[in-house]
Design a protein around this nucleic acid. Structure first.
Lengths: 121, 121
DNA sequence: TCAGTCACTTGCATTTCGAAAGTTATAGTA
DNA sequence: TACTATAACTTTCGAAATGCAAGTGACTGA
């Protein structure tokens, strides 16, 4: 019933990607996840200095759209970390293409290195 | 004198790309240009229905960042059209990667066809 | 003279963003 | 028993961005 899909703006794949990733912060959170970051403080300590309310909002939305999963890594008090899903990992080629273009046209920019994430306790 | 480059947020290429392309409309204007659109009305008639003030703003910014050039295609009255620069054309692989990921994860989306642009007079 | 076209600009209400401060629940230390 | 620190958020509120509707200027063609 009601077989016609409803897209927010159009049936263009680019448009639909922009509806979830089209802002100045979301893709940076994904970048951090790709680099190996998992925890709240790791994200807030990136040089772009994302505000904590923006980070919380973006993580919530990324979880809602299935790009990220949240899981507790300890109890008492409960502490959570975030991991990319396969769908989220699938964005790597997009990030790669952006890095290639970005490095070409913004002289002095440089790909960030992977981070060794904090150890479990 | 002051040899250190100043980046708005960080020296990450992704960050710097997001500073110019990180919103819900800019990349759609670029998509339209890649598809062959050149004129104001062609952009406003895309299915996402960009508002004319947003379009004017984005075209201005794209020109300022060297992704697009504006040129008159007639006088009396002066009428302008917009074309991608080489820098702008360089974004095609980014759009491609987005389309590939988007088509996979948003079922029902489909790449838009090139348009035959209006003829000169 | 008058409607139509094109590339915009202007006004204004609504929405989203973002910096700073606050909250909750613990562990560790004196 | 207090006190300090840590981690993961939430709240507040002014500022900026968005988006709808209407307006503008310079023409062309009927």
């Amino acid at each position: 019933m009601g077989s016609k899909m409803k897209f927010k703006r159009s049936s263009c794949p680019i448009t639909n990607v922009l509806d979830t990733l089209g802002d100045k912060w979301t893709l940076l959170v994904i970048r951090d996840l790709v680099l190996g970051k998992r925890r709240y403080q790791e994200f807030t300590s990136s040089p772009e200095r994302i505000a904590s309310n923006i980070l919380a909002d973006r993580l919530k939305k990324l979880e809602a759209t299935g790009l990220v999963t949240r899981r507790a890594y300890q109890r008492n008090p409960a502490r959570y970390e975030y991991l990319l899903t396969e769908k989220g990992e699938g964005l790597k080629p997009v990030l790669e293409a952006i890095i290639v273009w970005g490095k070409t046209h913004y002289p002095g920019t440089k790909r960030f290195p992977r981070v060794a994430h904090v150890k479990e306790r």
